[in-house]
Design a protein around this nucleic acid. Structure first.
Ligand code: MN
Ligand code: MN
Ligand code: ZN
Ligand code: ZN
Lengths: 144, 144
DNA sequence: ACATTTCAAAAAATGATTGACAGCATAAAA
DNA sequence: TTTTATGCTGTCAATCATTTTTTGAAATGT
């Protein structure tokens, strides 16, 4: 009946509590969590779920296009249930990852295409700095 | 006498053949090689140099601002002796990484700053698609 | 000469991710 | 309903890029 369940069923994939928990968590957060964070967050409700299951589920969700993987430059990936390719902001201070809404970037791919012989299909845009909270605490800094 | 040697000396770092070879290779290529590629390329001239030395040297060159590390979304990093933060093109077909020269992206950071409360300091812009060579071979494709 | 520092190589450790495999749950087939 | 097949989970080991530690040689200082 619910949206995700039927998508999984259509693809011949089993609907399990672990899978629903992971995709629902991603749909209900703006925090772009890592696999580890997902695992820790869900471990109170699913104490027996293993980290490998989180990884395998994320791999599966990626492959059917329900989540995207973000590489913000840490040692591990972040995950996002918003699969549109949209720009992100990363805070040097607290490592949070936020979405960026900016019409200045609309049709960037189209504009860039005029400057290259590549056939462009996607873009990954990351902006680094200090979030509003961390900005206050910063006096003088270079970026790392 | 030579530029890199004096920079290293000024910082109190020793000038070794291995270090010079690595930085010179990076200065003379547009290929954005990985540590592994650097290691393999130099191993004919330096058969005893270990991969750990390449990593350690890259770490050192990064810390004194002579190279930057690129995370193009592979499992490993690419290195670039051009330390300005400039956009890159990545080919889905052959994994080459090229520089992108595009005045459409000038002052992007300044323009984006108006749309966010972050204090922005840096950006990483990656554009994905098919390079001129691979474009020919592509008939119909989704991006991976 | 002796002590101190710096280096490179080798070996070991790390941390994120993946793979192999056994048992379980569900569902199709008989 | 019983059997059979298949997918999924958890355990645990393996992998891979990278980092750290150890060791000994070479360079530098006294
Ligand atoms: Mn996002
Ligand atoms: Mn470059
Ligand atoms: Zn912050
Ligand atoms: Zn190509």
């Amino acid at each position: 009946m619910d949206d995700i369940s039927s998508i999984l069923k259509e693809k011949g994939l089993k609907v399990t509590p672990q899978r629903l928990a992971i995709i629902n968590m991603l749909k209900n957060t703006k925090e772009h969590p890592s696999a580890e964070t997902i695992y820790k967050t869900l471990s109170s409700d699913f104490p027996t779920m293993s980290l490998a299951t989180v990884y395998k589920t994320l791999e599966m969700l990626k492959s059917i296009g329900l989540v995207q993987e973000l590489n913000v430059g840490e040692g591990s990936f972040r995950y996002d249930a918003n699969v549109n390719s949209h720009p992100h902001l990363i805070c040097y201070g607290c490592n949070r990852v936020d979405d960026l809404y900016d019409s200045a970037l609309d049709d960037l791919l189209g504009r860039v295409s005029k400057y290259t012989d590549y056939l462009l299909m996607d873009q990954k845009l990351y902006f680094y700095g200090y979030c509003p909270d961390c900005k206050k605490k910063v006096t003088n800094h270079d970026h790392p």
